[in-house]
Design a protein around this nucleic acid. Structure first.
Length: 848
RNA sequence: GCGGGCGUGAUGGAAUGGUAGACAUACCAGACUUAAAAUCUGUUGGGCGUAUGCCCGUGUGGGUUCGACUCCCACCGCCCGCACCA
């Protein structure tokens, strides 16, 4: 008896698709275009189940769109620059370029057996000189357009290795290799002026109707628009040039609750004091210890130091406030100086308590409330409170109103201005690393910083470098830096910093539309293919990658590389969850955890009988030994089983737990479908049966439900319907015609998920051409409507009975029928119902 | 610390504010078999009960509603991000 043999059919159908080149994307006026893109992978060397899930989802969308008559672009590439290549080179002595291209070859070979509908002719890696040369051209155009500039910025500095560290290389405030306490140090760096676009990037979020609301909210909070008051305190006893300290506050209504002024350790005044006073210098040095992340700064112990300088309160010049240097004030936000109002800010409250500063409340919940506080009183701004130290607006008012009134008052009295500020900072793109896109500028003693000439691009990375010592190999290279000034021709030095890898991933979607063009994009291709109709990737990219890409699309439009219609490059976004797996853990004699591979565990026990602790749903990681290799699964069950399983068990936006039994069940199911097809193929031509009508009704309902599921990312729900229909078909006694139609339709509905199996069934049933290009089945509306519906009857919200009624029965008839039901009569016991709610087609609720 | 999300049977999960637990796993039972595997069929949230049936149940506590897994408030736990990981 023939059986389902994925290893044979998968390679056969992949060859058939390749022979006809059906996934090659060519511009065409006859069909609507559809561009589906999954976030491209970093070439780590092995694909993992997360990749399988991500690319299978994109593939379902792509194949469904092909079947519904679209001209589909579905490309693949490699996000190939970055630190892991350098780390691997340091660890094993190889070269980042060899390591990366080797990994790309391996991963491509691992991906191909999945049978994805990818146009491989468009493949590129961001470390190809062809790609990063065009990126350098973009940089030069951005520079000319005033979208790039240089300024100082703070980096993590390892004082032992004498090198800049990435945030992930800082562990508990220490360098990962040297173990030295990390310091914050300033370097001159290149920046993209993303902050000029803050307002637009914020406003345009409203137009992104097919983005998850949570992503838009996260971006909105990240951009962080705030309305506040900017004003200056005049100082007493301050050094020359510091007779005013500018502060920005979003709570000007609490100005009379001010008890100190705080400045950032990087504030110009702190710098000035640092130069004069060794004790201040020591304190500021202490503040600069630790990493640069906001998390590290916010969770560090709050430190402050009284500078001895005093400021006058703008409303009461007799009142003097101390000026503190405080480690939690960021120079990058606002003016780098604040006034502290301890009564209404918990951080200020803790600070004031620590340094014995007064805590005068500005407002209280109501008149009766005592005016001593045990913690900061921070009600929502929309709540009405009682102002005891208000100076503008009503005594009883909301925080919102009080803020507006305070700004108006201050503006009228010349104390300050209402201003709008953003939390979003400019994007620092300089990296002191080898494996990235070189920044194409030259430093000339006479001309200063000079852009490289476009005809000299790409500025290629030299191959002959060593990564055996910390620091940037480009800096150490004997000749690479040496060049001549593009302006005056004198001897000059290349910039040795390379670009942040976020730059690489900020425009690859545009490059895919013309991957080998001799300019960054080709406008007619960009105009045809952009925007990405469906973008799919992880939620971890919700803010940075997606915000940078949105900015880049705008910058590319300004410099003529993208049409105005592509400034929001992703029409729809879907964020998928991870693939998780149980962790099997025991402990050693010292109580430390020991992890075990899934194949070492049977029925919760090791081979020697030791009980294993099972930790469910954990992110797959090598160190926890809970990684499942897709290749092993494909070998055992085939790609269709892997694809089916990653879609079937969880909603796509949630994590899915990989289980061996689930994978086996998926395989069994696919076998079952194949066997049904085999059986039907052997039926006698025109054989008659019974229940044809029922089978056809079930089929049309399934077409409808699966179509809705596939189009709305309800893949798991669509698969549940396919299971149900398979069971119906298996039991069906219908005639050969109906059964053949049913199995072919089932194959078509499964084709986006299990394309190889679907092709095989299609061929077995004598289908015309390839199922991959066959038109998507359409449900017959008439077959979807049932004549009768079952309606539950609730009594006081609890389901007590049900009635079968005609689908179009009027409300009052339904009500009469419900009230006549035995269960209702028994409960009402002669009394009249207080209320009867009839929701047509859904439910009846009798309130007794 | 700040911003965002999630929480439903033994397990993964389903459910436009309208029958909680679809579909799948696991378990149990049955058919087929000398037997096993494979395959097929059936049962399964907890409790009471011979039973028509009744009570409880969607992280915890409150609220809105004829009706809440779904909306609101507070709390607990887990996950993602925090600008040099990709």
């Amino acid at each position: 008896m023939p059986r389902y043999t994925p290893s044979k059919i998968e390679s056969r159908w992949q060859a058939a698709w390749e022979k006809d080149d059906i996934f090659k994307a060519v511009r065409s006026a006859d069909k609507p275009k559809y561009y589906v893109l999954e976030m491209f992978p970093y070439p780590s060397g092995r694909i993992h189940m997360g990749h399988v899930r991500n690319y299978t989802m994109g593939d379902v969308v792509a194949r469904h769109k092909i079947a519904t008559g679209h001209n589909v672009l579905h490309p693949m590439g490699w996000d190939a620059f970055g630190m892991p290549a350098e780390n691997a080179a340091m660890a094993t002595g190889g070269h980042p370029r060899d390591w990366t291209y080797g990994n790309i070859a391996d991963m491509r070979a691992q991906m191909k057996p999945l049978g994805l509908s990818i146009d491989w002719s468009r493949e590129f890696a961001t470390c190809d000189p062809e790609y990063y040369g065009q990126q350098q051209a973009l940089f030069l155009d951005f520079l000319e357009a005033g979208l790039v500039y240089r300024k100082n910025a703070v980096v993590n500095w390892d004082p032992v290795d004498m090198t800049v560290l990435a945030n992930e290389q800082v562990e508990n405030g220490r360098g990962w290799r040297s173990g030295a306490l990390v310091e914050r140090r300033e370097l001159t760096q290149w920046f993209f002026k993303i902050s000029d676009h803050s307002e637009e990037l914020l406003e345009a979020l409203d137009t992104l109707d097919n983005w998850p609301a949570k992503v838009k909210l996260m971006q909105s909070n990240w951009i962080g628009r705030s309305r506040g008051l900017q004003f200056a305190f005049s100082t007493l006893d301050a050094p020359e040039g510091f007779d005013r300290i500018e502060v920005y506050t979003t709570r000007p209504d609490t100005l009379l609750g001010a008890s100190f002024v705080g400045i950032s350790p990087d504030h110009p005044l702190a710098r000035a004091l640092e130069r004069e006073d060794p004790e201040v210098a020591a304190f500021v040095a202490e503040c600069r210890k630790g990493g640069t992340t906001e998390e590290a700064i916010e969770t560090a112990e709050k430190l402050g130091r009284d500078t001895g300088i005093r400021v006058r309160h703008p409303f009461d010049t007799a009142q003097e406030l101390p000026v503190y240097i405080a480690n939690f004030i960021l120079m990058d936000y606002g003016t780098g100086a604040i006034f502290g109002c301890p009564a209404h800010d918990q951080r200020d409250f803790d600070f004031a308590t620590k340094y014995g500063l007064p805590i005068p409340p500005v407002f209280l919940p109501d008149e009766d409330h005592a005016d001593r506080l045990d913690e900061a009183y921070v009600p929502p701004k929309t709540e009405k409170v009682f102002y005891i130290r208000g100076f503008a607006g009503d005594t009883h008012q909301t925080g919102e109103k009080a803020i507006d009134a305070a700004i108006a008052f201050c503006e009228e009295n010349g104390v300050g201005q209402g201003v709008t500020k953003y939390r979003l900072r400019d994007w620092g793109l300089s990296r002191q690393r080898y494996w990235g896109c070189p920044i194409p500028v030259v430093h000339c003693d006479a001309c200063g910083v000079v852009p490289e000439k476009k005809e000299n691009l790409p500025i290629e990375l030299p191959y002959d470098v060593t990564l055996d010592v910390p620091g940037n190999p480009l800096d150490r290279h004997p000749t690479w830096r040496d060049t001549e000034c593009p302006a005056c021709g004198a001897a000059a030095r290349r910039e040795t910093d390379t670009m942040d890898t976020f730059v690489d991933s900020s425009w690859y979607y545009a490059r895919f539309t013309a991957p080998h063009a001799e300019t960054p994009t080709r406008l007619e291709d960009a105009e045809y293919w952009m925007n990405v109709d469906q973008y799919i990737g992880g939620i971890e990219h919700a803010i940075l990658h997606l915000l940078y890409a949105r900015f880049f699309a705008r910058a590319m439009h300004i410099t003529g590389h993208l049409p105005a219609s592509a400034v929001e490059p992703f029409d729809a976004l879907f964020t998928q969850g991870m693939v998780t797996h149980e962790i099997y853990q025991t402990t050693d004699e010292r109580g430390r955890p020991v992890y075990h591979l899934p194949e070492e565990v049977t029925d919760g026990k090791l081979a020697d009988g030791t009980e294993v602790q099972i930790i469910p749903s954990a992110k797959m990681s090598k160190s926890k030994k809970n990684v499942v290799d897709p290749l092993g699964i494909i070998d055992r069950f085939g790609a269709d089983t892997a694809r089916w399983f990653v879609l079937s068990d969880s909603p796509p936006e949630r994590d899915v737990e990989w289980t061996a039994s689930g994978a086996e069940a998926a395989y069994k199911h696919l076998s079952r479908v194949w066997n049904i097809s085999d059986r039907i193929a052997g039926m006698e031509e025109n054989a008659q049966g019974t229940g044809d009508e029922d089978l056809m009704r079930a089929m049309h309902k399934t077409i409808h439900d699966v179509t809705v599921g596939v189009e709305s990312f309800g893949f798991n729900a669509a698969i549940a319907k396919l299971y149900a229909f398979t069971a119906t078909l298996q039991k069906s006694q219908a005639g050969q015609d109906s059964q053949r139609e049913a199995i072919m339709t089932l194959a078509q509905l499964m084709a986006p998920m299990t394309p190889h199996l679907a092709e095989d069934i299609w061929a077995m049933q004598g289908g015309e051409g390839l199922i991959a290009t066959a038109p998507w089945p359409v449900a017959d509306e008439a077959m979807l409507v049932d004549d009768t519906v079952t309606m539950p009857i609730q009594i006081n919200g609890k389901r007590r009975a049900e009635i079968k009624v005609r689908a179009d029965m009027p409300k009052d008839e339904v009500e009469a029928l419900a009230l006549g039901h035995e269960a209702v009569i028994r409960t009402l016991d002669g009394a009249a119902p207080k209320k009867v709610i009839v929701v047509p087609g859904r439910i009846v609720n009798v309130v007794a």
